[in-house]
Computed example of a mutant assay.
Amino acid sequence: MSTKRIAGPEIERLIQLLAKVPGLGPRSARRAALHLIKKKDQLLAPLAGAMGDALDKVRICSVCGNVDTTDPCMICTDARRDPATLIVVEDVSDLWALERAGSMNARFHVLGGTLSPLDGIGPDQLNIRTLIERVAGGEVTEIILAVNATVEGQTTAHYLTDQLAGFGVKVTRLAHGVPVGGELDYLDEGTLAAALKSRTVF
Rank of each mutant, 00 (worst) to 15 (best):
R81T: 15
D82T: 04
L126F: 02
E12A: 14
E10I: 07
L43E: 14
E90V: 04
C73L: 04
T69M: 14
L43K: 12
G120N: 12
D91V: 04
T141Y: 13
A136M: 13
D56I: 05
L24N: 14
V21I: 10
Q125P: 13
I37H: 03
E139P: 15
A149H: 06
V21Q: 08
C61Y: 01
A19Y: 00
E139G: 12
R100K: 10
D91N: 10
I60M: 07
D124T: 06
A106Q: 13
I75M: 01
R134A: 13
K39V: 10
I143V: 08
G49P: 05
V88G: 05
R100D: 07
P72M: 10
I11W: 05
D119M: 07
V110D: 12
F108E: 01
I121S: 11
L47R: 07
N148P: 14
M104V: 12
I121P: 09
L126N: 03
L17F: 04
L86Y: 05
P83N: 11
L118K: 15
L115W: 06
D78C: 02
S103G: 09
V147Y: 02
K57E: 03
A79M: 07
S28D: 08
P83I: 09
I11H: 12
D41C: 08
G112Y: 03
L111R: 13
T114F: 09
D71F: 04
C76R: 10
P46D: 13
V92I: 07
A106H: 09
T85N: 14
G112L: 11
V151F: 01
R59E: 09
K57S: 05
E12I: 12
D71A: 15
E133Y: 10
L44D: 11
G137Q: 15
L145T: 13
P22L: 03
R59C: 03
Q125M: 02
T85M: 06
S62C: 09
H109E: 15
T155R: 03
G113F: 11
A79K: 11
D91T: 00
K39P: 15
A97G: 08
P26Q: 08
F108P: 02
D71R: 06
R13W: 01
L86D: 00
L55I: 14
G137I: 03
I11Q: 13
D78M: 01
M74C: 07
V58L: 01
G113E: 12
A32Q: 06
I15M: 05
I143Q: 11
I128Q: 01
D94V: 07
G102R: 06
I121M: 10
L36K: 06
P117V: 14
C64D: 15
G113N: 15
L98D: 04
